[in-house]
């Protein structure tokens, strides 16, 4: 099992050179996390399989673009995964939020060793800043980011017009930024 972010950076470096064994190791170390991220947004295994496949093909092709000065390797990979999942969910569906995605799920105790790589100061700080948002707006932000809910989905869930949701989002994001950079 991989232990650190720098291990993954090194693997990415080798993948950039076309090292298939490194790619297999990278997959083993990171796929459950990326699969989890994508499944949470798409909520369908068949679609998730396809998107995860695309994401790893992209990682294989673009490993050389990874810039450690810009993001941690996991953030870089997770960003590719989220973007691809969001493209998929925005393309194919019209607001299919069902009640089974509970707000409570936002606090999921299960963490991977990999997840913990990112833990620490940044995470505590973000938690504090999210919790400092008024009312349910911390949930609003989490549902958008983690579950991929659109403005319309959020409007339905919170029983508010889309315009209100947009205002809430903008205010919340500004407050978050101020809190995080304070």
């Amino acid at each position: 099992m991989l232990a650190s972010s720098s291990d993954i950076s090194r693997l990415l470096d080798r993948v950039a050179g076309g090292d298939r064994q490194a790619f297999a190791d990278l997959y083993e170390a990171t796929a459950p996390k990326l699969y989890g991220i994508i499944l949470r947004i798409l909520r369908r295994r068949d679609e998730t399989d396809e998107v995860v496949q695309d994401v790893y093909v992209k990682i294989w092709q673009r490993a050389g673009d990874f810039d450690p000065a810009r993001a941690s390797p996991i953030t870089w990979m997770a960003t590719i995964a989220r973007n691809r999942a969001l493209d998929e969910v925005r393309r194919a569906r019209v607001a299919t939020v069902s009640d089974d995605i509970a707000l409570e799920r936002a606090a999921d105790p299960a963490r991977s060793a990999l997840g913990d790589l990112e833990a620490g100061e940044d995470r505590r700080r973000l938690e504090i800043c999210l919790d400092a948002l008024e009312g349910e707006r911390g949930s609003l932000v989490r549902l958008a980011y983690l579950d991929g809910l659109s403005r319309q989905d959020l409007a339905d869930r919170f029983g508010q017009p889309v315009g209100t949701i947009k205002t809430w989002l903008h205010r919340s994001l500004k407050q978050l930024r101020d809190c995080l950079t304070a």
Binding site: A24, Y27, A31, P32, K33, Y35, G36, I37, L39, R40, R45, D49, V52, Q53, A71, S72, I74, T75, A78, T79, A106, A107, D108, A110, R111, S112, L114, G115, D116, E118, A119, D122, R123, R125, L126, L130, R142, Y145, L146, L176, R177, L180
Partner: peptide
């Protein structure tokens, strides 16, 4: 991306199907 990505810690890992790789 840096600001928000720590939230991803909350996502539980899920084992992909064995035929995916």
């Amino acid at each position: 991306e840096r600001h928000l990505s720590p939230m991803l810690d909350d996502v539980a890992p899920v084992a992909p199907p064995p035929d995916l790789f």
